[in-house]
């Protein structure tokens, strides 16, 4: 017969108990959050949130005063209807080309509806998400390039590249990213006439490059010396040996820390909001300031970042599995 003591020491029972505990903790967290917001008398308006991502844009074009259509000018997918009143003063109405029902010579009357249509448009959050994605992807690519060259320079036997690399790495790692962004915007941006987008991307790339350089250096150093010797003994140059023997092996090893670095980069991109780039975080703040829906908006912003970072880490896990073929 099972006693209580037996039950307590049964691993399966303990496992079940642990799952129940997990469920209780999660429920407690949700209940706690709910209770706290009740206390501050916050009115949740989740129904407001979707339109910050995507919204239906309604358009109605009405005629201002009686006139005669004198021309239809195509401008991309839109058409500009040019009409003249009895004083020959021109009026312009821009309508999607496929909705144009009038033709040259038609009389149009004041208040007449020329066209009415609805269009899906990206809300501020979606625009911010796209900008965050653009900045991050560009900074990751540039960061890898900068990091690769700096990492190789760091390992060089000759003093100039080695010490330049060490100086750069220490400088970047020793100063706050926020300060670097300001420097890139106010100083480098002014000198080289960069847009704030370029300044932001460059600041993030240079920042990521320093960390990537250290990761790549460690990766190359972790490859056994015999690999380089074997490659060189076959007559391969330093470049060929690096390109085909050392870096492919090193890359496989540094993939996890590199992924961590790039996840950080995506999150760090929230700082470029300070140089008037309306990326995801800044977009959230702007919506918050005008609607006071801070709670919902920032929960949504967090979820959108999570989608980006989670996708990246899934991608890296997939690559790791692909590379594992030779193990």
């Amino acid at each position: 017969m099972e006693t209580v003591k037996d039950l307590v020491h049964n691993p399966r029972f303990r496992n079940t108990l642990s799952w129940i505990a997990l469920a209780l903790i999660l429920m407690g967290l949700v209940a706690g959050t709910y209770h706290t917001t009740q206390k501050v008398e916050y009115i949740w308006r989740w129904e407001q949130v979707p339109r910050y991502v995507l919204f239906k844009d309604s358009n109605l074009i009405e005629v201002q005063e009686d006139a005669t259509v004198i021309a239809l000018d195509r401008d991309g997918s839109d058409t500009v209807i040019v009409a003249a009143n009895f004083l020959d003063e021109e009026q312009y109405y821009t309508v999607p080309s496929d909705l144009v029902t009038t033709s040259v010579g038609d009389e149009i009357r004041s208040g007449q509806v020329l066209a009415q249509w609805e269009r899906w448009k990206a809300g501020l959050l979606l625009k911010g998400l796209i900008l965050t994605l653009e900045i991050s992807v560009l900074a990751i690519i540039l960061g890898i390039i900068i990091g690769l060259f700096t990492g190789l320079a760091r390992l060089s036997g000759s003093p100039a590249p080695k010490w330049l690399a060490i100086g750069y790495i220490e400088l970047i790692r020793g100063t706050p990213l926020l300060v670097q962004i300001y420097i890139f915007y106010f100083f480098v941006g002014q000198v080289f006439k960069l847009s704030n987008f370029m300044a932001g991307v460059l600041a993030l790339s240079v920042f990521a490059g320093a960390y990537v350089a250290e990761i790549i250096r460690a990766g190359i150093q972790s490859i056994h010396r015999g690999q380089m010797e074997a490659a060189r003994s076959l007559g391969m140059s330093y470049y060929l040996s690096m390109r085909y023997i050392i870096l492919p092996q090193a890359f496989k090893r540094i993939l996890p820390p590199l992924a961590g670095q790039f996840i950080s980069l995506i999150k760090d991109s929230s700082l470029v909001g300070v140089i008037a780039l309306v990326e995801l975080t800044r977009a959230g703040r702007e919506i918050g300031t005008s609607t006071f829906n801070y709670f919902e908006v920032f929960f949504t912003v967090a979820a959108l970042y999570l989608i980006l970072t989670f996708t990246l880490s899934m991608l890296v896990q997939y690559m790791e599995r692909r590379f594992a073929a030779s193990d």
Binding site: H224, G226, Q227, E229, A230, A231, I245, P248, Q249, K252, F323, S326
Partner: peptide, 9 residues
């Protein structure tokens, strides 16, 4: 070489 040093990848 003593330790072969084949390219493992």
């Amino acid at each position: 070489f003593q330790s072969f040093n084949l390219f493992p990848h």
